[in-house]
Simulated assay, not measured.
Amino acid sequence: MHELSIAMSIIDIAAETSRTHDDARVIAVHLKIGRMSGVVIDALLSAFTIAKEDTVLANAKLMIEDLPVKVRCPKCQCERLADSIQCLCCSVCRTVSAEITQGDELDVVAVELEPLEIRQ
């Protein structure tokens, strides 16, 4: 299950972001995951829940934007949704495309932080 190693990497990224912002509390980590990334989102959510225990992300949420697959159609000369991940064809003219423009990414796009209360 490579989702556990992905979850741990996400935690490392968010924890480092927290450290560089005066150990602010991590509220959420925002991801963009393409349908062709090879990541099983439910498995990642479960792995994240387990891996975040006893870390600065213990109460953080994982916010995932599930991205459809888009291809650049050689016939239409524009970006279109692919019919499916099994058929990388233009959804309008059905021409096969080898150029994926979206749908294979796994990106941490934001780490939402909450500053710790100032001690006096």
Rank of each mutant, 00 (worst) to 15 (best):
residue 87 C to Y: 05
residue 43 A to Q: 13
residue 91 S to D: 15
residue 56 V to L: 11
residue 74 P to S: 09
residue 96 V to I: 05
residue 53 E to F: 11
residue 93 C to M: 04
residue 82 A to N: 03
residue 40 V to F: 01
residue 89 C to L: 11
residue 78 C to Y: 09
residue 81 L to R: 10
residue 85 I to E: 13
residue 67 L to S: 04
residue 32 K to R: 15
residue 93 C to L: 02
residue 41 I to K: 06
residue 53 E to P: 10
residue 87 C to A: 07
residue 90 C to M: 02
residue 93 C to D: 04
residue 61 K to I: 07
residue 79 E to S: 14
residue 86 Q to W: 08
residue 54 D to V: 13
residue 92 V to K: 07
residue 40 V to T: 08
residue 40 V to C: 05
residue 35 R to Q: 11
residue 55 T to K: 10
residue 81 L to K: 10
residue 62 L to P: 04
residue 42 D to H: 06
residue 37 S to D: 08
residue 83 D to N: 07
residue 78 C to N: 09
residue 52 K to R: 12
residue 33 I to T: 02
residue 36 M to C: 04
residue 88 L to V: 03
residue 71 V to H: 05
residue 38 G to L: 00
residue 56 V to D: 11
residue 77 Q to K: 15
residue 59 N to W: 08
residue 37 S to A: 12
residue 93 C to A: 00
residue 77 Q to S: 13
residue 63 M to Q: 12
residue 57 L to C: 09
residue 59 N to Y: 08
residue 66 D to Y: 09
residue 86 Q to H: 03
residue 52 K to F: 05
residue 87 C to D: 12
residue 52 K to Y: 00
residue 83 D to T: 11
residue 96 V to W: 10
residue 84 S to I: 10
residue 34 G to Y: 00
residue 96 V to T: 12
residue 72 R to T: 07
residue 53 E to W: 12
residue 33 I to S: 00
residue 51 A to C: 06
residue 70 K to Q: 09
residue 64 I to K: 01
residue 31 L to Y: 01
residue 40 V to A: 02
residue 89 C to A: 07
residue 55 T to C: 03
residue 62 L to C: 05
residue 95 T to M: 10
residue 70 K to S: 08
residue 49 T to P: 05
residue 66 D to P: 10
residue 36 M to G: 07
residue 68 P to C: 12
residue 48 F to E: 02
residue 82 A to C: 04
residue 67 L to Q: 08
residue 54 D to E: 15
residue 86 Q to K: 07
residue 61 K to L: 04
residue 55 T to M: 08
residue 89 C to D: 10
residue 93 C to E: 01
residue 50 I to E: 09
residue 84 S to P: 02
residue 60 A to N: 11
residue 32 K to N: 05
residue 72 R to M: 11
residue 65 E to Q: 12
residue 36 M to R: 04
residue 88 L to G: 01
residue 46 S to A: 14
residue 61 K to S: 03
residue 74 P to D: 06
residue 69 V to R: 13
residue 91 S to N: 13
residue 74 P to T: 03
residue 51 A to G: 04
residue 41 I to G: 03
residue 77 Q to Y: 12
residue 65 E to G: 10
residue 65 E to H: 15
residue 57 L to Q: 03
residue 45 L to E: 14
residue 77 Q to W: 10
residue 69 V to Q: 12
residue 62 L to K: 07
residue 91 S to C: 12
residue 86 Q to S: 08
residue 58 A to C: 10
residue 88 L to K: 01
residue 85 I to G: 09
residue 50 I to A: 11
residue 75 K to P: 07
residue 86 Q to C: 06
residue 69 V to G: 10
residue 31 L to M: 04
residue 94 R to G: 08
residue 52 K to S: 03
residue 72 R to I: 11
residue 85 I to T: 10
residue 37 S to L: 03
residue 32 K to G: 01
residue 94 R to N: 12
residue 48 F to D: 01
residue 48 F to S: 02
residue 64 I to R: 00
residue 79 E to Q: 14
residue 51 A to V: 02
residue 70 K to I: 03
residue 73 C to F: 06
residue 96 V to D: 14
residue 42 D to K: 06
residue 46 S to M: 14
